[in-house]
């Protein structure tokens, strides 16, 4: 059936309202401080480590993001850990709060479609995350300049900027997931718990489970095992399973982008190594090519999660 008018009438209005709600909310304030403090700690560790190493490094600036000093994880690990929390924090009550405040039927009685409301909320959440991450990115670059004292090259800036974009997409995956559960569950607490549960599962349990499952699908070959080598089939199966998790995808893309010497993601075959000078950095374009499939997979999961939520939302009754 042909619908009258634009599906996105009112989209801008909804987005701006939600954005201003987010930016002034206490919740966002807390999340931002959490991220900033944690990032500073990681950065401090990285800078100490860099100062201690005297070795020449052409990509010293990128090391700021990836190097860690015990007991702190690297900046990138912190980000991959905290960004989902931020996104879940913004999205878990996106739709059910409208039901619980009884505003939904009143708002939907205005000349807009549900599309605009849902998409506006998603865009506002994503914009909020993008703003926070951009601020964080600028903070890291500024501090890096001040404390390390080496100006980064254009390529390094470019690579860290790509890292920023990838992180926003990664945040989008979790935001879409959180919003999906905010549509499914009327209670915001339930939605938050379920989303956090899934996050815990994906981040901590899935990597272990993927290894175990891979060994069931592709049993370890004793011939490889006796040589102390991983069985190629098993390793491949484990990789495929692990890549079902957005956290794995994000980690892989980050490695490809922030470490220019990365030639391949996943198991490396001898054929790929032939003719390659080990440790020689790749140009930025080739790094992007390596990271491309994972990036597309992340974008696809954002779209998939959003569409599933959209379809469910369209069919829901407006009554609480």
């Amino acid at each position: 059936m042909q619908r009258e008018g634009s599906a996105f009438a009112g989209l801008g209005v909804v987005t701006l309202k939600e954005l201003s709600d987010h930016l002034t909310s206490v919740r966002m304030r807390v999340l931002e401080w959490l991220v900033v403090l944690v990032a500073l700690a990681a950065l401090y560790g990285a800078i100490q480590q860099i100062k201690d190493t005297t070795a020449e490094d052409p990509f010293l600036f990128l090391r700021l993001f990836t190097i860690s000093r015990d007991p702190l994880p690297s900046f990138v690990s912190f980000i991959s850990f905290l960004v989902p929390l931020m996104a879940i924090g913004l999205g878990f009550d996106a739709v059910n709060s409208e039901y619980n405040r009884r505003t939904l039927s009143r708002i939907l009685a205005q000349p807009i479609y549900r599309d605009a409301l849902l998409f506006g909320k998603f865009l506002a959440g994503l914009a909020t995350l993008a703003i926070s991450l951009l601020a964080l990115w600028l903070l890291v670059i500024g501090l890096g300049l001040l404390l390390v004292g080496i100006p980064p090259g254009a390529e390094e800036i470019g690579r860290t900027f790509l890292f920023l974009l990838i992180t926003i997409i990664y945040a989008g995956v979790w935001l879409a997931l959180a919003m999906l559960f905010s549509i499914l569950f009327r209670s915001a607490a339930t939605a938050a718990l379920v989303t956090l549960g899934i996050w815990l599962f994906i981040t901590f349990i899935w990597p272990v489970l993927a290894g175990a499952a891979a060994q069931i699908i592709m049993p370890i070959d004793p011939r490889y095992a006796s040589l102390g080598l991983p069985t190629p089939g098993t390793a491949e199966a484990e990789h495929i399973l692990a890549r079902l998790s957005p956290t794995t995808l994000f980690a892989e893309v980050v490695v490809a982008i922030l470490d220019p010497t990365t030639r391949s993601l996943g198991p490396i075959y001898l054929s790929q190594m032939q003719g390659a000078v080990l440790g020689a950095p790749l140009p930025i374009g080739e790094s992007i090519l390596i990271a491309w499939p994972q990036t597309v997979a992340m974008i696809a999961s954002v779209i998939l999660l959003f569409v599933v939520g959209y379809v469910i939302f369209q069919r829901q009754e407006v009554r609480a």
């Binding site: 059936m1 619908r3 009258e4 008018g5 009438a9 009685a109 205005q110 000349p111 807009i112 479609y113």
Partner: peptide, 11 residues
């Protein structure tokens, strides 16, 4: 059902 926006603008 077909022209919800026109209805909702006037109601």
């Amino acid at each position: 059902a077909r022209e919800p926006l026109s209805v909702k603008r006037r109601v």
